[in-house]
Simulated assay, not measured.
Amino acid sequence: MVVDDQTSMRAMIRRALQDFGFKDIRDKASAPEALSAIRNDRVHLIISDYNMPEMDGLEFLATVRKDEVLAKTVFIMLTGSSDREVVQKAAALGVNNYLVKPFAPAALKEKIERVFGALS
């Protein structure tokens, strides 16, 4: 599940994931929409922007980690800021990995492989 309020960023990440071999890629423009979707149809990976209206990435991560069913879902946070405080809060909440925008698809692949192992 790709969660970002920017349509172009969601499209870029979807293309990269398809190139990495992922088949079932869904995306949502907001964390509340994504929560509703993943509660009804589980996912193995969430790639979420930090800076979003309604619910930011940290709130989204905290909500996922508190949910008994979703808590173990791999969560990679994206942000346009390398603000240490945000990184530390995400780490404290249990983020699996973190990526600063802009990034190359190879960097995203590396972050995913650190969690799942080599992608074929």
Rank of each mutant, 00 (worst) to 15 (best):
Y98T: 12
D27I: 12
Q18E: 13
Q18P: 02
D27P: 05
D67R: 06
M52S: 01
T63A: 02
R10K: 15
D49I: 01
G80R: 12
R15N: 14
A29Y: 13
A34I: 02
A31S: 09
F20A: 06
D56F: 02
G21T: 12
A31M: 03
I46T: 08
S48R: 12
V43W: 13
L17H: 08
N40D: 14
A37L: 12
M77P: 03
Y50E: 04
L17Y: 07
F22M: 14
G57P: 02
Q88C: 03
L93Q: 10
D49P: 07
V64G: 00
P53L: 04
K89D: 06
A91T: 15
V69F: 00
V43Y: 12
D49T: 02
A29I: 04
A31C: 04
G57Y: 01
A37H: 09
I25G: 07
A11T: 15
L61H: 03
E59T: 01
G21I: 11
R10E: 14
E33N: 14
I38H: 10
T79G: 03
A37P: 02
D41H: 15
A71C: 00
P53T: 02
G94M: 05
L35C: 06
V95K: 06
E54R: 10
V100S: 08
A11W: 14
T79H: 09
A91W: 12
V74C: 10
E33Y: 06
V74I: 14
L93C: 08
A91M: 11
V95P: 02
P32Y: 04
Q88V: 10
T63D: 05
I13S: 02
L58W: 05
A31D: 01
E33R: 14
D41E: 15
N40F: 06
F75S: 02
